[in-house]
């Protein structure tokens, strides 16, 4: 790697991949500065997993180039493999082996000697709160435990780049939060992470920057905040006590807001986009109070990444794209 590239752990340029006549990737570029978390976001079939498979040497691109931890994925795949840890979409755990044996197996295959492999496996089991279940076959593990074991497997050789392909897909809310905590600890140790996810909340919580892909193309990139700012400011939402006061509230919100208010008589809810944040909220409440309008509920919402996604693609994150 040349000196100017020092700060970049993963770089991909113009990745293209076809499956038959389907263009799964259509010129994807991405870059991850060392020590940062990049969230690769997109619906099913957008090309997330294809990108991951190319960056982890499991798949050759039709064209384009990629470098991971200074190693070219095309000319030095073994160098890439020595520097990365991959935790896949489906926990690649051998369920007939115990948790300890699973990690020991991976450690040995990374070339660690027996005593070192044993020590490292025990360390990771403790760190991922699997030490109690360490010597039971993984068959009996919960979904969350399997994912943690799979992630531990990816970290055996202390890789400088960790690739997490949909680490929480299919987990229950508790398993998801546990997984997030584990990933946050990992990030704190300074690893560079490529995280793919369908969950915007996940990217929002874990990622320093986000690349949104849809149908094999990058459609947006930036920090989660930048993306949210792309679709404007916050949304001010009020619920008034009486239905007949809704028109009054609409008039007030039209004055303080930056757009056309939307109202729903039945739920007595009025909302409007605002540029000035809490100032607008306070101003709206002051004016309504002066008009003797009783406000039951008031809230200021920052746009979620879901809103961003919807405005970028014209379809939600859950829509299936034929693969």
């Amino acid at each position: 790697m040349s000196d100017t590239d020092k700060g970049v752990a993963v770089r991909a340029r113009g990745l293209v991949k076809h499956y038959g006549t389907t263009r799964a990737l259509d010129g994807v570029d991405l870059e991850i500065p060392t020590g940062q978390v990049l969230g690769l976001l997109g619906p099913n079939g957008a090309g997330k997993t294809t990108t991951v498979r190319i960056l982890t040497t499991l798949l050759l691109p039709d064209s384009g180039e990629a470098e991971v931890a200074g190693h070219d994925v095309l000319t030095d795949p073994d160098g890439v493999r020595r520097s990365i840890g991959l935790s896949g979409q489906y926990a690649a755990v051998d369920e007939n082996l115990t948790g300890f044996e699973n990690l020991y197996l991976v450690a040995r295959l990374y070339g660690q000697r027996k005593p070192q492999a044993r020590k490292r496996s025990r360390e990771l089991l403790a760190r991922f709160r699997l030490d109690e279940a360490a010597d039971r076959p993984a068959k009996g593990y919960s979904g969350g435990m399997r994912r943690r074991l799979d992630l531990a497997g990816a970290l055996v050789a202390e890789p400088s780049v960790v690739v997490l392909d949909e680490p929480t897909t299919g987990l229950d809310p508790r398993g998801r939060i546990e997984m997030w905590e584990v990933i946050e600890q990992l990030v704190a140790t300074g690893a560079t992470v490529l995280l793919t996810t369908q969950y915007l909340e996940e990217a929002d919580r874990l990622a320093d920057s986000v690349v949104v892909i849809d149908r094999g193309k990058v459609i947006a990139r930036g920090t989660p905040d930048e993306l949210k700012n792309q679709i404007g400011g916050e949304r001010l939402e009020l619920v008034v006590a009486a239905a007949e006061e809704v028109p009054l509230a609409v008039r007030v919100l039209a004055e303080v807001g930056s757009g056309e208010p939307a109202a729903d008589e039945r739920s007595r809810r009025v909302e409007v986009l605002v540029d000035t944040g809490t100032k607008a909220l306070v101003e709206a409440l002051r004016r309504l109070d002066a008009l003797d309008v009783v406000v039951q509920d008031a809230a200021l919402h920052r746009p979620t990444l879901d809103d961003v996604f919807l405005s970028l693609t014209g379809h939600g994150t859950t829509e299936e794209v034929p693969s």
Partner: peptide, 13 residues
């Protein structure tokens, strides 16, 4: 089917 081959293929082995 279980993704174990993927894991092996991502290792420097």
């Amino acid at each position: 089917q279980k993704g174990i081959i993927d894991r092996f293929r991502s290792l420097p082995m």
